[in-house]
Simulated assay, not measured.
Amino acid sequence: MPRDDRSTDDRRPRSSTTEERRRSSDERRLFRGTTRLDVPREWRRTFVPRPTYDADAFGRLSERIARFLGTGQFLVYMTGTILFWVGWNIFAPQHLRFDEYPFIFLTLALSLQASYAAPLILLAQNRQEARDRVQYERDRDVDARTRADMEFLAREMASLRMAVGEVATRDFLRSELRSLLADLDTREEDRV
């Protein structure tokens, strides 16, 4: 029996390796490099791309709108618009009026404005809450560091007080020197 020196991989037809390559590229496209179990895999792209938006930009816009809705300027504009609307639809000629007395269209417009304002205000509040939470954590860290520094300084001050208590003061040194001088004077007198 003749011996075949080719490895088992070389005996397979070329089409199977091409198929494996295609399958592996499809799997790569499916998994997009995430082989971890805690990361959800991305699905294949469809012909119609999913709409995406920048959540941060939308949040900033909602905060600007919410800030404007809370100003006196907005209240003045809204009051002026409503007064103009009501005045026009009461005092204008009949053929130019677009919303008669029960002002249904005005009610619809105000309801629409309120239905959009409420979620925008809530979104702005959520973003502010997230910023406040981050600021609170920073403040807590700074407070902990400050407290640790204060405790360190208190310990240092206590050790300095103890050390100063053991240090000879100027008055103590003067009194010791006076007593030594007095002893020397008495010794000298005893010699003479």
Rank of each mutant, 00 (worst) to 15 (best):
R3V: 04
R3P: 00
D5N: 04
T8N: 10
R11M: 15
R14Y: 13
S16F: 13
T18W: 02
E19Y: 09
R22M: 11
R22G: 09
R23E: 14
R23N: 12
S25E: 15
S25M: 12
R28A: 07
R29E: 12
F31T: 02
F31A: 02
F31H: 03
R32D: 05
T34C: 07
T35M: 06
L37A: 15
D38A: 09
D38C: 09
D38T: 10
V39T: 09
V39I: 07
R41C: 13
E42Y: 07
E42F: 07
R45T: 09
P51M: 00
T52F: 05
T52C: 05
A55P: 02
A55H: 10
R60E: 14
E63I: 03
E63G: 11
R64T: 15
R64G: 14
A66P: 04
A66G: 10
R67P: 00
F68S: 02
F68M: 03
F68H: 03
F68N: 00
L69E: 10
T71H: 07
T71D: 08
G72Q: 13
L75S: 14
L75C: 11
Y77A: 15
M78W: 04
G80P: 01
I82A: 06
V86K: 04
V86L: 10
V86M: 03
G87D: 08
N89W: 09
I90N: 07
F91W: 12
P93I: 00
H95K: 13
R97C: 11
F98M: 03
F98C: 02
F103Q: 07
F105Q: 14
T107N: 07
L108P: 01
A109D: 03
L110T: 01
Q113A: 14
A117T: 03
A118W: 06
L120Q: 07
L122I: 10
L122R: 10
L122M: 12
L123V: 12
A124I: 04
Q128H: 04
Q128L: 01
Q128K: 05
Q128T: 04
D132H: 09
R133C: 02
R133Y: 05
V134F: 02
D139Y: 00
D139F: 01
V142A: 15
D143K: 12
R145C: 03
R147K: 12
A148S: 01
D149Q: 13
M150F: 08
E151A: 07
E151S: 04
F152A: 09
R155F: 01
E156I: 04
E156V: 07
A158R: 06
L160W: 11
R161Y: 15
V164Y: 12
E166R: 06
A168C: 02
T169G: 14
T169K: 12
R170N: 09
F172A: 10
R174H: 11
L177A: 11
L177V: 13
L180A: 08
L181C: 09
L184T: 12
D185P: 02
R187Q: 15
R187I: 12
R187N: 12
R191C: 10
R191S: 13
